[in-house]
């Protein structure tokens, strides 16, 4: 087990290098730092000095990979690649365009993101399992058929509509909670209810449908027939046997997203004005702050790989027959 984890972590290294090189290529090779400077300063009537100054202020004035002007190891370390990309491996994200430390901001904004993402994740799974069980219990009846159609309808609605519609209905018409904003501590609850609710509702369609197929697959197996043959009631079969076994694929499938919960939700956070990592990312994209976008790309990749690792481990815990090799 331990050896396996070590091996997987080592396997993650080339992937992270790949991610790093790819983002570096996207940001620095496709467009030279000069292009970026011109984009920020405006395309016309910009003097070369202004561009040079912009580049120097952000450390973009060095060579890309190899600095012949430097001495010894600095030939490689005193370059944009080392400065901007290689440092990410040490989680040293550097400074944003406005001079703030990215690492500090990320630490500050992690909590509000999690305050929304965790309830949505946990309650969402519970709600979806409940609905899926209901449909599975009434399988092949009209309730099931129309339930599935309703799921497809819910899936077809844009997530933007859920947010805008929810804000309008609950906050503007019914005045139940504030439209947007955030507060620290317990008083943040009133700001969090609506985004959490919307996050859960918008996931019901696809989640319920997916879990329903998992339940139905489980119901078709032999041990369920055996349980029925013993004379167990359908409810007992469903809760005592099917639910337990179906939880394995459901939970192991959900594990992969747990680390990514840190990244927050782009849309929800920006609509509700919650100072989490999602709105941080969106603001960075809209302000074209490349340093933050690069940092978030790297962070996201690390968390995704962590998710894959956790998935593999959770498989072995949930099902001892699976050996990691």
């Amino acid at each position: 087990m331990f050896a396996y984890i070590i091996r997987r972590v080592l396997y993650a290294v080339p992937i992270l290098i790949g991610v790093n090189v790819l983002t570096f290529a996207l940001f620095f090779v496709v467009n030279s730092p000069d292009d970026m400077a011109r984009m920020h300063l405006g395309t016309k009537h910009v003097k070369q000095e202004a561009i040079d100054k912009w580049k120097q202020a952000r450390g973009y004035d060095k060579p890309l990979f190899y600095n012949p002007g430097a001495r010894g190891l600095e030939k490689f370390t005193d370059t944009i690649f080392f400065d901007k990309s290689a440092r990410l491996f040490a989680f040293d994200f550097g400074k944003a365009d406005d001079g703030r430390s990215i690492s500090y901001d990320i630490r500050q904004r992690m909590l509000p993101s999690l305050a929304i993402a965790i309830p949505v994740f946990v309650v969402g799974i519970l709600v979806n399992i409940t609905f899926a069980l209901l449909l599975a219990f009434f399988r092949a009846t009209y309730l099931d058929v129309w339930g599935v159609i309703l799921c497809v309808i819910l899936m077809s609605i844009s997530s933007l509509f859920y947010i805008i519609g929810g804000q309008y209905l609950i906050s503007k018409l019914m005045h139940l909670v504030p439209i947007s904003g955030y507060d620290s501590g317990l008083s943040s609850v009133k700001f969090l209810i609506l985004p959490v609710l919307i996050g859960i509702v918008s996931g019901i369609g696809s989640g319920t449908r997916w879990y329903r197929t998992i339940f139905l697959e489980e119901i078709g197996k032999d041990y369920v027939r055996t349980a029925r043959a013993k004379g167990l009631s359908e409810l007992a079969v469903l809760f005592r046997h099917v639910l337990r076994n179906a939880l394995i694929p459901i939970l192991t499938g959900a594990v992969v997203v747990i680390p990514l919960l840190f990244m927050g939700s782009l849309l929800t956070e920006s609509f509700f004005g919650i100072p989490g990592l999602g709105s941080y990312t969106i603001d960075a994209i809209q302000n074209q702050d490349f340093a933050i976008v690069r940092a978030m790309v790297f962070l996201g990749s690390v968390l995704y790989i962590l998710g894959l690792l956790l998935t593999d481990i959770s498989y072995t815990i949930a099902d001892p027959r699976i050996r990691l090799s």
Binding site: L22, L26, F27, V293, M296, V297, G300, S301
Partner: peptide, 15 residues
């Protein structure tokens, strides 16, 4: 796959 989709798209579109 490990790069979050939106961010990869954002990075590419910005470029």
């Amino acid at each position: 796959n490990s790069i979050p989709g939106v961010l990869l798209i954002a990075a590419a579109i910005l470029s």
